[in-house]
Design a protein around this nucleic acid. Sequence first.
DNA 1: CGCAGGTTTGACGACAGTCAAGGCGAGTGG
DNA 2: CCACTCGCCTTGACTGTCGTCAAACCTGCG
Lengths: 232, 232
Amino acid sequence: MLFNPQARVCAECGIRKHALFGSLDLSALDRIHVHIASVRLEPGQPLYAAQISGAAAFTVRSGVVRLERTNERGERRILRLAGRGDTLGMEAMLGQSYAADAVACTEVEVCRLPRSLVEDLTKDQIELARDMMRRWQRALDDADEWLTELCAGPARHRMLRLLLKLSEFADGSEVWLPSRLEMSAMLDMTIETASRIVSQLKREGILDAPDQRHAILHMPQLLAALREEASD
Amino acid sequence: MLFNPQARVCAECGIRKHALFGSLDLSALDRIHVHIASVRLEPGQPLYAAQISGAAAFTVRSGVVRLERTNERGERRILRLAGRGDTLGMEAMLGQSYAADAVACTEVEVCRLPRSLVEDLTKDQIELARDMMRRWQRALDDADEWLTELCAGPARHRMLRLLLKLSEFADGSEVWLPSRLEMSAMLDMTIETASRIVSQLKREGILDAPDQRHAILHMPQLLAALREEASD
DNA sequence: CGCAGGTTTGACGACAGTCAAGGCGAGTGG
DNA sequence: CCACTCGCCTTGACTGTCGTCAAACCTGCG
């Protein structure tokens, strides 16, 4: 049935139901996936850069990608994180340049979705347009949530919310733990404050760090700590 | 040519080029606008509420609308502002409930775009789908900008950025000045801090307030103040 | 071994939150 | 007309959180 090798890979992809072309049938998939490429990134590698006029969007198959911007004062600010099933750089589909830098936080696998593909498809495949709209709305929801949860309140509270969010991206029992520098950019605090809070949370038994880049979250304690704050 | 009275109003609308159906020709407009209603709101009136399963999106024709959320601790946080030409509540087009509260800040005129309309249209009007995608991307860009500009750095800096943003929404020389409570929700600070900073900026001649709800911004001084901070 | 990069910890100070009092304007009722 | 209240804004004094500066530490690596 499926002649294109990449189409076969995609058909077996664990996240296809959640990915951009999840609404298409297999034969359509076969035609489409001629153009789709799988990309692999090491931690720290850029996926794309702000201002660049890109020709593709990307769907994350595994790992965590951060979206970040540099403001006029040269300070980097992490806007949000994207994980499995999230789509990045959709502005490219509109012929716009990327609005932010996208950088791999962990080992990352993404599917590259060239702009031309969508341009051709939208002519007859209306379901795809709908799918893309759902993705846009999702990204916007994420942005709103990030703003309310990770930008407001005292430093400790923002850190607890971040840990909660990181647990959403976890494969197994260990979550990816950002560097203190990355945390500080996500939560608008200094690396010293981030370090102090993480140390404190370790002492409180909310979190263990087997190594520098991973953590084991003790969810009951974490949730209890968040509830405790809310009651104050 | 145009039989529908609302279509005539729309054809003459100053922002039609920038509005959702700007890409359609006049005869298409005539068919469409049977369903479109103009809505007028007073300051403080809600346009829609979070969690409600809405049946329409809205395009702002005049005035300023704020999007806000209440977190689990009962604190309201303003996510962003929308002005002329911006579109709100597009999640309704996907059959989702509204993700935030939308409340009029000033006198507001919006066009109501029922979900059914878009559902019918997307079948043959591919340009509309494209238009909607552009809008989604724009909303996402706004969210990113809000995050980088209004959530980071010292309180004074955030206030200056807010004033700059408010100037984008101005009709004439006067800008709408939010209440201190609203400012505090936008910038994640207390109303006391907001009040102190605004008073200070008045003393510095960056801003004059003829009345409580309006301000005259002295842009050269404002921009100078922002540059001054960047150099530190 | 020494170096570099990231992390942790401490001391100190400043910015912003908290608590409290007072002012101003609009609307209400005597 | 004045007294009164109410909501919102302003200002002050004090406190605490968090940023700044600095030193020490750990780990991997040449």
